[in-house]
């Protein structure tokens, strides 16, 4: 059972606790990294009551599809979520550490970190991944959540160096972000309802999948749909596959309308 002298106590910082316990792997490696799974397109936007996050399910290694059901948008804690694009291995590990850190902080201190504090914490983790990023294993997350103190949804974009940028409307990351971001940019209004926001992010992912080979579209045959989640005053809520099936069905009818089929 870990007990520390006051001057060595890691406090509510779980990564520091890992370091004190000698459990941090040696991240320094030389040479080039062989092709490994990469995760792609994720988007987030603010709607009238909160934020919606979405990500496709595909992971690719070079030009091969390595995974069809990856979950790139995950719950960080009750009022926040994180979406990742980039090298899947470090990204999954980063999310796991981030989730543990938020809950660990909450239990040790008896209260949650502020939303801004969580965004800052993630920034430090992205920066910590810099040596791997230099080897082509960068991770570029999106952080979004509902600020219970200010009662608004907020979202942040990051760069590979840990730079943190709060966005007021929407953000996209990953290889399909240009297409997905453009769709959202054109369709965005500040007073979007929750349903309209779910429709807009789904449409943006469909357009990205249509134009970017590394982004997966809805797989109707297997019943695999993007991960879409809303975060508002009720906290994190996944949008169910049944609802998404309906959303993509209406996208299909929009896309095929008037075509000679």
């Amino acid at each position: 059972m870990p007990v520390f002298q006051p001057q060595n106590d890691p406090g509510a910082n779980f990564p520091l606790l890992l370091a004190r316990a000698g459990l941090v792997p040696d991240d320094s490696f030389e040479g080039s990294v062989p092709p490994s799974p990469h995760a792609t397109t994720c988007v987030a936007l603010r709607y009238d009551n909160g934020v919606v996050m979405a990500g496709d399910r595909r992971a690719t290694s070079g030009n091969l599809i390595s995974h069809r059901t990856m979950e790139k948008v995950v719950e960080a804690d009750r009022y926040s979520g994180v979406a990742i694009a980039g090298a899947a291995g470090p990204a999954i590990e980063m999310i796991r550490l981030f989730q543990v850190q938020l809950e660990y902080y909450e239990k040790v201190q008896g209260r949650s970190l502020s939303l801004e504090g969580k965004a800052n914490q993630l920034s430090a983790m992205v920066r910590g991944n810099l040596p791997a990023a230099m080897q082509g294993m960068g991770v570029v997350p999106i952080f979004a959540g509902y600020d219970t103190a200010r009662e608004v949804g907020r979202l942040w974009a990051y760069d590979m160096l840990g730079g943190r940028y709060e966005e007021r409307e929407h953000v996209a990351t990953g290889s399909g972000s240009l297409h997905a971001g453009t769709v959202i940019k054109v369709g965005y209004r500040a007073d979007l309802s929750r349903d309209d926001a779910v429709m807009l992010v789904s449409r943006s992912l469909w357009e990205a999948a249509d134009a970017d080979s590394a982004t997966g579209g809805p797989d109707v045959l297997r019943g695999i749909y993007p991960i879409v989640a809303t975060i508002d005053a009720d906290g994190w809520n996944l949008v169910g596959d049944a609802e998404l099936a309906g959303v993509f069905e209406s996208i299909r009818s929009l896309v095929t309308r008037g075509s000679a089929t």
Binding site: M1, F14, L18, R96, V108
Partner: peptide, 17 residues
């Protein structure tokens, strides 16, 4: 309270590892 925090740490470290 020191024991409480030590317990959280032991549990979280095991769960993470």
């Amino acid at each position: 309270d020191q024991l409480r925090v030590a317990g959280i740490r032991a549990a979280e470290l095991t769960g993470y590892q």
